[in-house]
């Protein structure tokens, strides 16, 4: 008998394809953590209110706690574990260490994935809520501290590493 409450899916995570059966209720976050051993993404609120579970889905940052695994079938998922290729840390990851962009580290994987997605969004010319003029005909908004803060506001940090995170992102961006 078919169980309508479960699905067989393929998930592509950090370049590896997994075939697995999931409870339709299971979020991408819980699937990554409990089924696939990717505990980098963290559950801070499970309601899209903190950003600790942020991953990249087909290159765009999303909260994995409100993404159903079954709905992510076929998508390319990148978690914090997949950011560094071949063991070499991204400049952004190195900058987080150098500028001490974390304390407890619990929000860090979300901050990093979010920053990677955010930098791509900015490079694509997307405005933000603090962009003075959203008109597409003006110059591309410069990624200054205010822009980084606004664009990263979906990632809460209770230790208060915000200034160091902003600095790490800006330094990484400046270094190209």
């Amino acid at each position: 008998m078919t169980n309508h409450h479960r699905s067989e899916i393929s998930l592509h995570v950090n370049g590896v394809t997994h075939r697995l059966g999931v409870d339709n209720r299971t979020t991408l976050l819980d699937t990554l953590r409990e089924n696939l051993g990717h505990t980098g993404p963290k559950k801070g609120c499970d309601h899209g209110q903190c950003g600790a579970c942020t991953v990249l889905l087909d290159g765009r940052r999303v909260v994995s706690c409100l993404t159903l695994a079954v709905a992510a079938e076929g998508a390319e998922v990148t978690t914090v574990e997949g950011l560094a290729g071949d063991g070499e840390l991204l400049p952004l990851q190195q900058a987080f260490i150098r500028f001490d962009g974390f304390q407890c580290g619990y929000c860090t994987s979300g901050q990093l994935c979010s920053a990677v997605g955010m930098l791509a969004e900015h490079a694509a010319g997307w405005p933000s809520s603090v962009t003075a003029d959203v008109s597409p005909d003006g110059p591309t908004p410069v990624l200054d501290a205010a822009e980084v803060r606004e664009r990263m506001s979906g990632n809460l940090c209770r230790c208060g590493a915000y200034p160091s995170i902003v600095r790490a992102v800006l330094e990484t961006e400046a270094a190209g």
Binding site: T39, G40, E81, L83, I97, F102
Partner: peptide
């Protein structure tokens, strides 16, 4: 000095209480 556990925290390798497989 940067944190000793920095590399573990920026790669998702650092294990918190709910992360340890049993």
């Amino acid at each position: 000095q940067p944190r000793i556990e920095g590399p573990a925290k920026v790669t998702g390798a650092a294990r918190y209480a709910a992360d340890v497989p049993i």
